[in-house]
């Protein structure tokens, strides 16, 4: 076996064994949150990195997914799994309805349009008290205990959610790799590189932009549903443009179109600042400094820079 794959295997094994060796629930929570951000960054990368759609509404779909699933459970007593799937479906429909007119505008106008949507969704959630709970929606049920062959599994535990998020992350990566390495992915890349030429070669540009936008939003919505059950309470800020901006910065810093980039961004911009608790008040400064350094010295992100150091490195950085 190639040494590269042995290293990947060992990293994978270490990730799987984290809950076995880490006893602190706080650290398990931290790793789970990093996993959630990795899913969000990877899904945003499908729209931004692969298709060239700079969306500042990505967190809005994460939020709509979280709220839809939670509201279905709380108001209509829908069981967790169907609520999660229904919430994701509702978000996909909303993403398609928003994306259809939005994706006809280009460049900075599209970015500003998505920013407006992000702000609007946050305000709607905040002000629709009767449905969303206003400043906070709490009491979202945890996953129940399940007994299989006489063994009881506590699905509300932090460890279960760690593995659940890890599974979603792995499936997300597989889905994205499969889409990207296909006719659909090639069309996304063509649109990113030269939209007019793509149309001149017979590609349905607006149709494929919509597919990319809805697929990215759907993954975010599914993650949002799990997040709602994980946290037990959610706030409108999770759907805000500030959150979307953070996700975008994570991609730019980590590197687009790269699994490593989706890992580096959240680790550096969420995990490290959380770890440096004493420096919480300097968090925006840390964020800004990293962003400036990366934009100036590593325009393709940290993963892109590492890949460019040597042709062999390019093979080692997935």
């Amino acid at each position: 076996m190639h040494p590269r794959f042995i290293i990947y295997f060992l990293i994978g094994l270490a990730v799987v064994l984290v809950p076995v060796f880490v006893q602190s629930n706080y650290w398990i929570y931290m790793f789970t949150m990093v996993g959630i951000f990795m899913v969000l960054v990877s899904s945003l990368d499908l729209a931004y990195g692969h298709t060239g759609l700079v969306s500042l509404a990505h967190a809005a779909f994460f939020g709509i997914g979280a709220y839809s699933s939670a509201i279905l459970q709380l108001k209509l007593a829908v069981p967790i799994l169907p609520a999660l799937l229904l919430g994701t479906l509702i978000t996909a429909i909303i993403a398609a309805a928003i994306g259809w007119p939005m994706l006809r505008i280009r460049g900075p106008y599209f970015v500003l349009g998505t920013l407006a949507i992000g702000i609007a969704i946050e305000i709607i959630i905040h002000n629709w008290d009767g449905l969303t709970g206003g400043v906070s929606l709490s009491g979202i049920p945890m996953f129940p205990e399940v007994t299989i062959f006489g063994t009881t599994f506590d699905l509300s535990s932090k460890r279960f959610f760690y593995y659940l998020v890890l599974a979603v992350l792995v499936v997300t990566q597989i889905l994205i790799r499969r889409i990207v390495n296909s006719r659909t992915g090639r069309t996304f890349a063509s649109i990113r590189e030269n939209e007019d030429l793509a149309a001149a070669l017979g590609m349905n540009v607006s149709g494929y932009k919509l597919i990319s936008f809805v697929a990215a939003s759907t993954i975010a919505a599914f993650m949002g549903g799990i997040y709602a059950n994980y946290m037990g309470a959610i706030e409108p800020e999770i759907a805000g443009s500030h959150m979307s901006f953070n996700l975008l910065v994570m991609i730019v810093v980590g590197g687009t179109r790269s699994i490593a980039g989706a890992v580096i961004g959240p680790l550096l911009l969420w995990f490290v600042p959380e770890f440096l608790e004493a420096a919480q008040m300097y968090r925006p400064l840390f964020f800004g400094a990293i962003l400036i350094i990366v934009i100036i010295f590593m325009p393709t992100g940290i993963a892109g820079k590492l890949r460019s150091l040597h042709p062999r490195m390019a093979k080692w950085i997935p």
């Binding site: 889409i179 006719r183 659909t184 992915g185 090639r186 890349a189 063509s190 030269n194 017979g202 590609m203």
Partner: peptide, 29 residues
């Protein structure tokens, strides 16, 4: 010479074929 600058030659030409092929996003998954 209007091209897709970063795309490799083989994939570039395959892009031209995409209007004649049928694989959907589901098929790619």
């Amino acid at each position: 010479a209007t091209i897709f600058p970063k795309i490799p030659v083989m994939i570039h030409i395959m892009n031209g074929l995409s209007c004649r092929t049928k694989s959907s996003v589901w098929n790619s998954i």
